[in-house]
């Protein structure tokens, strides 16, 4: 009997959740998926020229923006995920540009 109540409660909880989620998530999710793809490509591009910054995904970084974005999306928080991906995108592009700008770096003396 107790089990039944629990199961019933769980079902209610799930439908309840569903009920409160507006119909937006599908598009947010799509937005997230596209942003993730772009961000990952930008990170790979930066890494390919040795220009990846510390906090994008390095395992000992305290921020790890990219894995954190993926985690946020898994938890259904697409707004947070998109914000984090924004940072990833910016840092990856900046890291790539930096490496390109430094291509001919050498002593200034």
């Amino acid at each position: 009997m107790k089990k039944l109540i629990a199961a019933f409660g769980l079902a209610l909880f799930i439908t309840g959740c569903n009920a409160t989620t507006p119909d937006k998530p599908a598009s947010k999710q799509a937005q997230y998926e596209a942003a993730l793809k772009n961000a990952q490509a930008a990170v790979d591009k930066a890494a390919s020229v040795g220009g990846e910054w510390r906090d994008i995904r390095w395992k000992k970084s305290k921020k790890k923006y990219l894995p954190s974005a993926i985690e946020a999306a898994k938890a259904g928080d697409y707004d947070k995920a998109l914000k984090l991906l924004d940072i990833v995108q910016f840092q990856a592009e900046a890291g790539y540009k930096q490496a390109m700008a430094q291509k001919n770096a050498g002593p200034r003396f």
């Binding site: 040795g50 220009g51 910054w53 510390r54 906090d55 840092q91 900046a94 930096q98 490496a99 430094q102 770096a105 050498g106 002593p107 200034r108 003396f109």
Partner: peptide
């Protein structure tokens, strides 16, 4: 040599910035 003189990271600094200049 290039690694040593190239600025990198969010702080945009090269090894040479801190340990030469």
């Amino acid at each position: 040599k290039h690694f040593f003189y190239a600025k990198r990271g969010q702080l945009n600094m090269a090894c040479a910035d801190c340990h030469v200049y």
